[in-house]
């Protein structure tokens, strides 16, 4: 039970990162390998706002989201649009986003240095005991902010003009274009939203883990795994996949072996891919012959 609960906050983080992958993949079919580095940049921007501008946690959260979201849109316009215009093969797109990841990571290294930084939690981190299990207020904060962000994203996609356009592009890029939607703009919205929620995830975990320039690699990979386990390209799938992965990791680490925790996760992933490539939580779409 304790392990199950421990998995929820990290699961929320994975969900946020997975949402980023799925949103971009649904809109533009791109697999964005720099997603984890948006998380890292979010944490660093939050850290800077908090310590150097001496603003509060809430402003740090907002500023980080905005700055990193703009960066996400910039990546789409400067790198992915030219690739699409040149009809680059998918593997080139993969390499381009990996290049972005390398650039972000090493810019962060140059700006903030190699030493791990820590962002203090805005709430107490002393565990509270409730009915035999313990939770920290930070965990509760992560969960509640995480779920709030998911709800905001949901209503953004459902109710706003940009959100509806994005969904239309995800359904059928060509048809969306015919009714006057600019798919490149929608891609930029997807990139900005993904980068923004990634940044939020970065700030939320910053008080739990250290902030380092290469933290994006592993968290990005986990988010990707969560997105695929849930069903790549779908919003509910990403959320379910994130929580599922968080809980499985916590259970595997706690009950089996902490050293092999990630190996277990990846083995599970390969089995899921093999048996059900469309994800655990989706009905299978048959490919048309």
């Amino acid at each position: 039970m304790q392990f199950f609960l421990n998995g929820l906050p990290i699961g929320a983080i994975y969900s946020l990162v997975a949402l980023g992958y799925s949103l971009i993949y649904a809109a533009s079919g791109v697999l964005n390998w720099s997603q984890g580095d948006m998380v890292m940049l979010g944490a660093y921007v939050g850290f800077t706002v908090f310590f150097f501008l001496k603003l509060g946690f809430i402003s740090a959260l907002f500023l980080a989201i905005v700055v990193v979201a703009l960066l996400g849109a910039l990546v789409q316009y400067m790198i992915l649009r030219p690739l699409r215009e040149r009809e680059a093969p998918p593997i080139n797109v993969v390499i381009a986003t990996l290049g972005v990841a390398i650039i972000c990571r090493n810019l962060a290294l140059g700006i903030w240095g190699p030493d791990p930084q820590i962002l203090p939690s805005p709430v107490s981190s002393r565990p509270l005991s409730l009915a035999g299990v313990s939770v920290t207020p930070q965990d509760i904060l992560v969960l509640s902010v995480g779920i709030t962000l998911m709800l905001i994203l949901h209503s953004f996609l459902k109710n706003t003009r940009e959100g509806k356009a994005l969904r239309a592009v995800a359904q059928d890029r060509y048809a969306a274009q015919l009714v006057g939607i600019d798919p490149e703009r929608s891609d930029a919205v997807a990139f900005a939203a993904s980068a923004g929620i990634g940044a939020a995830a970065g700030i939320l975990i910053a008080p739990i883990f250290f902030v380092t320039f290469n933290m994006g690699a592993s968290i990005g990979l986990k988010g990707f795994v969560a997105a695929v386990i849930g069903g790549l390209g779908t919003i509910p799938g990403a959320i379910a996949g994130g929580f599922f992965l968080g809980v499985v990791e916590s259970l595997a680490g706690g009950l089996i072996s902490s050293g092999y925790r990630d190996a277990i996760t990846f083995s599970l992933l390969i089995v899921v891919l093999w048996l059900k490539p469309s994800g655990l939580f989706l009905r299978k779409n048959r490919q048309k012959v």
């Binding site: 690739l83 093969p89 381009a96 972005v100 390398i102």
Partner: peptide, 18 residues
């Protein structure tokens, strides 16, 4: 910023030399 340039070279190459 060595690897920043390295990353930029990757991006540049896949865009302009597909």
């Amino acid at each position: 910023f060595r690897l920043v340039i390295y990353g930029s070279i990757l991006v540049f190459t896949v865009i302009f030399m597909p």
